[in-house]
Write a protein that binds this DNA or RNA. Structure first.
Lengths: 353, 353
DNA sequence: TTGAAAGCGTTACCAT
DNA sequence: ATGGTAACGCTTTCAA
C-alpha cells in the first residue's frame, strides 16, 4: 500500500496525491475528495522513512539524558512526560536517548544517522561534550540546563544559585545557625553537573553572607542513601537544626533518618530544598521548597526547539527561571534543640551512589 | 556526506561500502581497512531514513502509554526507564507514544507510518482497542499487562489477582478484620484498567474467603487524593485497621492521612499493597508490599519483542509474574484500635482524579 | 572479491 | 490544476 497505488485507484498522478495530502499545492475539490475517499477506504498512511528521506525531516525530536543505571528520579520523569506531551501537540514524536556523553552509541545514532530533526538535552554538565559537539555542528538543540558558558546557545535553565541561596536565607530568617546541604551523588558532582555545582555555590555564598555554620554532603539518589546521609549529618554535628536538599530522591530517606533520630519536623529540625512540587507534596510534613517547575521547563524547551527548527537562522533564545519558595510545612523557627538528644551512632559509609 | 562519497574516496563501489559496513558479504581485509579509514576520517554515518526505506527496518521500537494529563506515576517511570535501557542493549532506540486509544494521532503515526519495527504497550485495559488493532494487523507488539483474553498474544503481566489476594491474606493472618482497598482512579477503573480490575477481584474474593469486612475506594493518582481517601475510609468505618493500596501515587497521602488521624503505622493501622520496590522504600515506615518488578518487566518485554522481531513466525510467548510480599515495616498485628479515637470529620469530595 | 543497477516510497521541481 | 520524473541515500540482486 503506497502512494502509487492510491494514485492509480484515484486515477491521478502520485504527485497529485502527495500534494492533496500536504496541501503544498492547490488541488481541486473534486480531485481531493476522490483521493481522500480512496485513502479512507484503504487506510493508507504515507511511509515515514520514505518521507523523511525525501524531504529531510523526520518530525521526531530526540530527548537525551544520561542512562540512569538503576533508576530515574522524579524530576526526570516530569521532564520526560512534559516533553513528550508538548511534542505531541506539535505532532512531533520523541525518541529517547540514554546518553551521558557524546560517545554513547545512542547519541551517535540519534545525531549522526539523522534520526531526529533536533534534540533536547537534560542533565547538563558545566563542561558538556554533548553540548560542545552539537554546538560545533550547529545541530538544532535546546538544553534543559546551562553549561559554564551558555551564551550563544539555546536553553531553558533554573537559577540554582539563587534557589539554593533563597533556601539558606529562608532558614537564616527563621534563626537557624547550623545548616547542612544534601547534594546529588559525588559522582555527579565530580562529573560537573550544573545543578549540583551552582546549587552548592549558591548555598555556600549565602551561608557565608549570613554567617552560618555549614557542612555539605553528597548523597546517593535513593531513600537509603538519604537516611544514611542524615545519620552522618547528626553524627558530625548534632547541633544541626536544618538542611537544604538538592537531592529529591533522597528526601524520603532524610525524613526517615530524622524520625529515627527523634527529631520532629519542623519543631526540632527544618527541611527545605529544590524539589519538583509533586514530590514535595508527597512527604509528611509537606516540604517547603523552591519548586522545580519541571513540566513548564519541558514545555518551554519544546517550544524553543520548534521555533529553532522552523527558523534555522533565528538568534539563540533562552529562559532562566527562578521560582519562589513555596511555604509548606517542613520549616519553622530554630528551637533550642531537642530536649533529650539521642546519642549518635557512627553511620554507615555508603552515602554516595 | 553519503555512501557514494565514501565509495568514491575509497575507490570502490557503493555496494562494497555497504557490505563492508554490514558484513553481509565478504570483503577483503585490504578493502575494508581502506574504507574504514575514509569513514573514520570523514565521520560518516549511514542515514537512518534511507536505510529504513531500503531494508524495511527502523531499529526503533515504540513505547505506547496513555497520556498522563498532568503527571506520570512512579511505576510508569520505572517501566519507561527499563525499556529504554534494555532497548539500548539491543541497539534499539525507543520512540514514545502517548496514546491511550488506537485513534490517537501519535498511535496512528507510529504504526501506520511504520516508524517503528515493533511496539510495547503499557497500561493495558481488559478490552483494549489498541491491542485489538495490533492483533488484527499482526503487528509485532508486546503488552505489559493482559487483556481479558490474552491467549495468543505476547505479553508480560503481573498476577494482580493473586497479589491483591496475598495482601489480604497477609492482613487476615495478622488478625485484621476490617480492611479497605484503595484502588486507582474511578476513571481508570471505568476504562477497564487491568490492574485495577484484577486487583479488585483478588481483593474481594480473598476477603470473602477470610470473612473480612471490607470497603473499596477509588482514589486519584496523587498525594492529596490519598489523604482525602484515607479520611473517608476512617469516616466510613472508624474501626478499619488496615488497607491495601493498588495506588502507588496515593501512598504518601495515605500515610499523611493516618498520621493526621493519630493512627500510628503499624501499631494502630497496617498498610500494604502492590507498589514498585523503590517507592515502597521511600515512605516511613517502609511499606510491606508485593513489589511490582517494573524494571524486570520492562526488560522482559523488550526481550520478548526482540525475539518476535527476529522470528516473525515464532509462537506467542508470555511471562506471568507473581512476586512474593516483601516484609518491611508497615504491617503488624491488629490491635484493639487506638485508645482515644479522634472524632472523624466529613472528608472532602474530590477523592477521584 | 567486487561492480552495476534496480528498487524502497516519498517529495518537489519542471513541464504543460 | 495536474502529470512526469529526478532526486533522497541506502540495500540487495544479478553479473562478472
Amino acid at each position: 500500500m503506497n502512494i502509487g497505488e492510491i494514485a492509480k485507484r484515484a486515477g491521478v498522478s502520485r504527485s497529485t496525491v502527495s500534494y492533496a495530502l500536504s496541501g503544498k499545492r492547490a488541488v481541486s475539490d473534486h480531485t481531493r475528495e476522490k483521493i481522500q475517499r480512496v485513502i479512507d477506504e484503504l487506510g493508507y498512511r504515507p511511509n515515514a522513512s520514505a518521507r523523511a528521506l525525501a524531504n529531510g525531516r523526520t518530525n521526531t525530536i530526540g530527548l537525551v539524558f544520561p542512562p540512569a543505571g538503576d533508576h530515574y528520579t522524579g524530576m526526570q520523569l516530569d521532564f520526560i512526560g512534559s516533553v513528550v506531551e508538548a511534542g505531541a501537540t506539535y505532532d512531533y514524536d520523541v525518541l529517547l536517548s540514554p546518553s551521558g556523553v557524546d560517545s554513547d552509541r545512542s547519541f551517535q545514532r540519534l545525531l549522526g544517522e539523522r534520526r531526529v530533526d533536533g534534540a533536547i538535552l537534560m542533565e547538563i554538565r558545566l563542561q558538556d561534550d554533548r553540548v560542545d559537539h552539537l554546538l560545533a555542528e550547529n545541530f538544532p538543540a535546546v538544553c534543559i540546563g546551562r553549561t559554564a558558558r551558555p551564551e550563544g546557545d539555546w536553553w531553558v535553565g533554573l537559577d540554582h544559585t539563587a534557589l539554593a541561596a533563597a533556601c539558606v536565607h529562608h532558614l537564616a530568617d527563621l534563626g537557624h545557625r547550623r545548616v547542612a546541604l544534601v547534594n546529588r551523588p559525588e559522582r555527579l558532582l565530580r562529573a560537573g553537573y550544573e545543578s549540583a555545582h551552582r546549587g552548592l555555590e549558591g548555598f555556600t555564598k549565602a551561608a557565608a553572607e549570613r554567617g552560618l555554620t555549614v557542612r555539605t554532603y553528597t548523597c546517593g539518589d535513593d531513600a537509603p542513601s538519604g537516611q544514611a546521609c542524615l545519620e552522618r549529618i547528626l553524627y558530625d554535628d548534632p547541633a544541626t537544626t536544618a538542611l537544604v536538599t538538592l537531592n529529591e530522591a533522597a528526601l524520603g530517606g532524610l525524613y526517615r533518618g530524622l524520625s529515627h533520630a527523634g527529631r520532629h519536623v519542623p519543631r526540632d529540625f527544618s527541611v527545605t530544598g529544590v524539589v519538583a512540587a509533586r514530590w514535595a507534596e508527597t512527604v509528611t510534613p509537606q516540604l517547603t521548597a523552591a519548586d522545580m517547575p519541571a513540566a513548564q521547563m519541558g514545555r518551554l524547551a519544546v517550544e524553543l526547539l520548534v521555533e529553532r527548527l522552523d527558523h534555522p537562522d533565528a538568534p539563540p533564545r533562552h529562559h532562566l527561571l527562578a521560582p519562589p519558595i513555596s511555604l509548606r510545612a517542613s520549616t519553622g523557627p530554630a528551637g533550642t534543640g531537642p530536649a533529650g538528644s539521642v546519642a549518635p551512632t557512627p553511620p554507615g559509609s555508603d552515602l554516595n551512589a
